[in-house]
């Protein structure tokens, strides 16, 4: 899930300076779970905007704002309300914002900051476990990702800042390499300590990322769903 936090009201206030009429868009997926762009937050945004003398021409919660074609289709249903708005205020992650900016000439404003792809510990508590590096080493590191969990993303063991098994950057957090080492010991495996890990191939992460599945794979999936 994409973890995001709302932009400060002060920042939004400055952003909305020349906007008198706004259309609001939230997202029913990650942004709802993160409490930044669900029904409650869109409603609260509307109240705040109206209290500050602005007009909200309408609002919409997309099921998944990251779905480009669906967002375009949904937006077409609200054409009049969109036309009346000076700008669209999007309470969804950066990916969602861009699905929308892709299908309208209107000014599109992001109301949240996207932070990371996160796991959910419990409601309201999110943790980054995977950095989407494109070159997974988990099979050798006992299922703990050093690219993400080590503050420096080191691949060959801990740095000199490890103290009593804790990380130098946040001393109350376990050093990822201590966790990897302890788990490998329990499994009686050498894992990543058996070899010198080569530098990462960052060419797999050249931006922007893009993946197109072969037609046959896509069609096969559709068959099964039918």
């Amino acid at each position: 899930m994409i973890i995001s936090t709302p932009k400060a009201r002060q920042e939004l206030e400055a952003l909305l300076q020349d906007c008198r009429t706004l259309f609001l868009i939230g997202c029913g997926s990650c942004a709802t779970a993160c409490k930044v762009g669900g029904e409650d937050e869109v409603f609260a945004a509307q109240e705040w905007l109206e209290a500050s003398g602005r007009e909200v021409t309408g609002s919409l919660i997309l099921d998944e704002a990251c779905h480009i074609m669906r967002a375009a289709r949904e937006l077409r249903r609200f054409r009049e309300q969109l036309d009346e708005a000076d700008a669209l205020l999007i309470l969804a992650c950066g990916a969602g914002v861009q699905s929308i900016s892709d299908c309208t000439e209107k000014r599109v404003l992001a109301a949240v900051n996207s932070l990371f792809v996160g796991n959910i510990r419990r409601f309201g508590q999110y943790e980054e476990k995977c950095s989407l590096c494109g070159d997974c080493i988990l099979n050798e590191t006992a299922g703990i990702c050093p690219v993400t969990n080590c503050s420096k993303g080191l691949l060959n063991g801990p740095c000199g800042g490890m103290e009593d098994g804790c990380c130098e950057v946040e001393t109350d957090r376990d050093c990822a390499w201590t966790s990897i080492y302890q788990r490998l010991e329990k499994q009686q495996r050498q894992g990543v300590f058996d070899r010198v890990v080569a530098p990462k191939d960052w060419s797999r992460k050249f931006k922007p990322g893009k993946l197109s599945l072969e037609r046959s794979i896509v069609d096969n999936g559709r068959e099964k769903h039918r």
Binding site: N156, G157, P158, D164, T178, Y181, V196
Partner: peptide
Amino acid sequence: AQPQALVLKKFSK
């Protein structure tokens, strides 16, 4: 630094 066994693994590399 502790655990020293882990420090030694990186030392070997």
